[in-house]
């Protein structure tokens, strides 16, 4: 196997060539913050929280940057800390994230991230957009107020379930997750009611109907287990 040696935060390690810096760092016990990344889904490098400084080059997204021989990676610098806090602040400013009345309170990756990056208050003014809630699906709901557009739901539905119910509509600040051809979720025939999108949602945007605060069953880790199981069953190609 082709391997390469690199240094991440002064820890020397050797990984298989082509391993992403995010995974390489995890091997070294360093958890780089991320929101859009999820093991098992194609990385998109969209949330920019996993930015790291590589040698003297500008920040690179660790989820889509392959480890290379002799690389020197810094995962926690003043610049990166400021970028990360700013990004989380931007997300809080952009949506309507009211933890106290959110189903995901206590089990929310955005909330955890805010604590992690030291966001004790938001320096950016809130935008308080007018957003809708889609409760047309018999089992699940989608609250656009809490969506951070990580596109995990889009990818899991397309890549794992193969239904491609979700996509992103519009652009810029008007971006919105859409079901089918921007239809009510319940009206989209291709939805198989599998609930994978709900499981991978980092916030309370996608949720089981009927659940309330405290019992938000978000289990992003189950995706990796599912894919492992599938691979075992299918055997080598």
């Amino acid at each position: 196997m082709n391997v390469c040696s690199l240094r991440i935060d002064d820890r020397a390690l050797t990984v298989a060539a082509g391993t992403s810096l995010l995974l390489a760092a995890r091997r070294a016990g360093i958890v780089i913050p991320s929101l859009c990344h999820l093991d098992g889904l194609t990385p998109v490098g969209a949330c920019r929280l996993c930015l790291v400084e590589v040698d003297t080059a500008g920040p690179l997204a660790a989820c889509v940057t392959a480890a290379a021989e002799g690389m020197r990676v810094r995962t926690d610098t003043p610049l990166l800390r400021d970028i990360r806090r700013s990004l989380v602040e931007m997300l809080f400013s952009e949506g309507n994230h009211t933890c106290a009345v959110c189903i995901a309170d206590g089990d929310c990756e955005l909330q955890t991230m805010a604590l992690r990056v030291g966001m004790d208050h938001n320096r950016l003014p809130g935008r308080f957009p007018s957003r809708t809630v889609d409760l047309s699906h018999p089992l699940f709901g989608l609250d656009h107020n809490r969506c951070i557009l990580c596109t995990r739901c889009v990818r899991v539905c397309d890549e794992v379930e193969g239904a491609h119910v979700w996509d992103v509509g519009w652009r810029g600040e008007r971006c919105r997750i859409i079901a089918g051809l921007d239809q009510p979720w319940g009206a989209v025939d291709s939805c198989s009611h599998c609930g994978k999108c709900v499981e991978v949602c980092p916030t309370g945007a996608l949720f089981h109907k009927g659940s309330c605060g405290g019992d938000h069953p978000s289990h992003p880790e189950r995706l990796a287990a599912l894919l492992r199981g599938r691979r075992r069953q299918e055997g080598p190609p």
């Binding site: 952009e94 652009r171 810029g172």
Partner: peptide, 21 residues
């Protein structure tokens, strides 16, 4: 730039809004 941002990454989608404001 705010109008033409595709909305994929956070700094461009939200940052251009904040800068214009």
């Amino acid at each position: 730039s705010r109008e033409e941002s595709c909305g994929k990454c956070i700094p461009c989608r939200c940052g251009t809004v904040q800068l214009e404001l």
